[in-house]
């Protein structure tokens, strides 16, 4: 049961249904990519999994290593081991990156455990070096005045420090030039392994050249319409999304 299992998830925003009996299983240790045209519900999936209150789950279940997370608060879901890398991370004035990550780690301490600052800074600096983030960033306010690439690297830094069991990367490639994309992809690749399951949400195949997925799923109109290996991404790159719409089951996207 080491997996992220999404079963028949139905999600609405302001009464409009976006996800329709969405089902998908990501085993721990694998990287799955979800691709699909704009407006098909990819980001809705990410926000709903993270427990955002504006995304109403009207039906279905989500299990994190067998633990139901539907109905839990966003902070509980995070501490249960699901990490979300935001497409548009918020800027938090006056809160430094170091303090922000420290608060997130402190929230994960078991009773009786204490936070160990020297070990924290040692690890933080190592991870920052790896992600080519200047060490002076620790004392900068979270995302404030960051470039697009800096914001995304900061997301991956947080992921590296929090060590989640599963990560949902929502359009992590958007707004990145090729160099920034490579740095971000390197960071994710370094974390790949038997202890991490990844769900990559992307519109473009480009990211998948650098983070090669185990499985690719094509999403359309709120559900998965086709699954396959990395070659599926190449087909999408070559042929676009039109064939997906035609291949979708009757009634979908109408």
């Amino acid at each position: 049961m080491s997996n992220l299992e999404i079963k028949n998830l139905n999600v609405s925003i302001n009464g409009t249904q976006i996800l329709k009996d969405f089902s998908l299983t990501v085993p721990k240790g694998e990287v799955h990519a979800i691709m699909g045209p704009n407006g098909t519900g990819k980001s809705t999936l990410a926000k709903a999994l993270a427990g955002h209150e504006d995304y109403e789950i009207t039906g279905g279940e989500v299990f994190l290593d067998g633990e139901q997370i539907v109905g839990k608060e966003p902070d509980e879901i995070s501490r249960a081991g699901l990490f979300m890398a935001f497409q548009y991370p918020s800027e938090i004035p006056g809160v430094t990156i170091a303090n922000f990550i420290r608060a997130a780690l402190t929230a994960r301490l078991e009773e009786g455990e204490t936070f160990k600052a020297p070990a924290f800074y040692k690890e933080l600096y190592e991870k920052m070096d790896l992600l080519k983030i200047d060490r002076s960033f620790t004392s900068r306010s979270v995302n404030e005045g960051f470039s697009g690439g800096e914001k995304k690297r900061c997301e991956i830094l947080q992921m590296a420090m929090l060590k989640p069991g599963y990560a949902v990367l929502d359009e992590t490639d958007s707004g990145l030039d090729i160099d920034a994309l490579k740095v971000v992809a390197d960071g994710v690749n370094q974390m790949r392994g038997p202890e991490l399951g990844v769900l990559l949400i992307t519109h473009y195949q480009r990211l998948l050249n650098y983070i090669v997925p185990d499985k690719v799923h094509v999403m359309f109109d709120g559900r998965i319409v086709q699954s396959g290996g990395p070659e599926l991404a190449e087909k999408l790159e070559a042929e676009g999304y039109d064939w997906v719409k035609e291949a979708a089951p009757a009634g979908a996207g109408a």
């Binding site: 995070s78 979300m84 935001f86 004035p93 006056g94």
Partner: peptide
């Protein structure tokens, strides 16, 4: 954003106010 990092609501609010006053 704070919640999604596992930081509880009251702690998040406190940090945001600290940030506001910084």
């Amino acid at each position: 954003y704070f919640l999604a990092r596992g930081i509880p609501r009251n702690k998040a609010q406190e940090l945001m106010v600290f940030g506001y006053f910084e």
